[in-house]
Amino acid sequence: MILEFLSYAFLRRALFSGLLISVSAALVGSSLVLKRYSMIGDGLSHVGFAALAIAMIFSWSPLLVALPIVILAAFLLLRISENNPLRGDAAVAMISSAAMAIGILLISVTKGMNTDVFSFMFGSILSLSDSDMILSVILSVAVVLFYLVSYNKIFAVTFDETFAESSGISSNFWNSVLAVLAAVTIVLGMRMMGALLISSLIIFPPITAMRLFGNFKQVSIVSVLVSAAAFLIGIFSSYALNLPTGPAIVLANILFFLIFSFLRFWKRRKRVTAGGQE
């Protein structure tokens, strides 16, 4: 079955670019989740939806329209959350629902609700054009490489902005870098997962890894592995059982989360009983 899947060139390409996007989402996700920026990821995906709507109306390249808009939105959401942590939460929700509403209005007024809208919302990895695919591969490789080169600084800013600042690491700059990385990852992943599901690709793998691992390097590596495995399970099962790809990947991620949570529970129980016997 897997061989049959791999015999299609377009499926091979989808597999390759999807795998790379899953890896970059897991890496960027670890920092976003630990910095309490998960909601920003969610907000960006909705802004991305509006951007895709605009691209569709004018028949422009979806990625090239969405990238600058979502990067700008990332800067905006970051500033709002930093300046006002309390109301920032509400502001992110407002911006994301506003973007969603504008996107849907634009589409229904110009082209009417159609299958494109469905694929924007819930994703369809097969809708990617060849040029989109090439761009996805280049950008996700760039995200991963940049993350690896800056790993120590990203760790420092994620763990303690104030201390990082005293060591001459500008938290403003690195938060912006993180926002750009998140924006790029979300735009790339959105075609595959859909605007409504992409944040799961960023949030689930790191949270799952953190259930069992207490060391940042381990968390990063394990969340990459979990993300890649969930993607593979998701895409093959969606092919075999004719399921939508995005939801199948999310389901695989939920499965990993439950398994890791159970292992943590089991490990703790064992420790407690072992402690009691002493």
């Binding site: 760790f155 420092a156 303690d160 201390f163 990082a164 207490g214 060391n215 940042f216 968390v219």
Partner: peptide, 18 residues
Amino acid sequence: QKDFPASVTEIVSSGRLN
């Protein structure tokens, strides 16, 4: 940071980034 998943070595090492 109280529940941050990082090892002691990782955290102390970040002091050398300056």
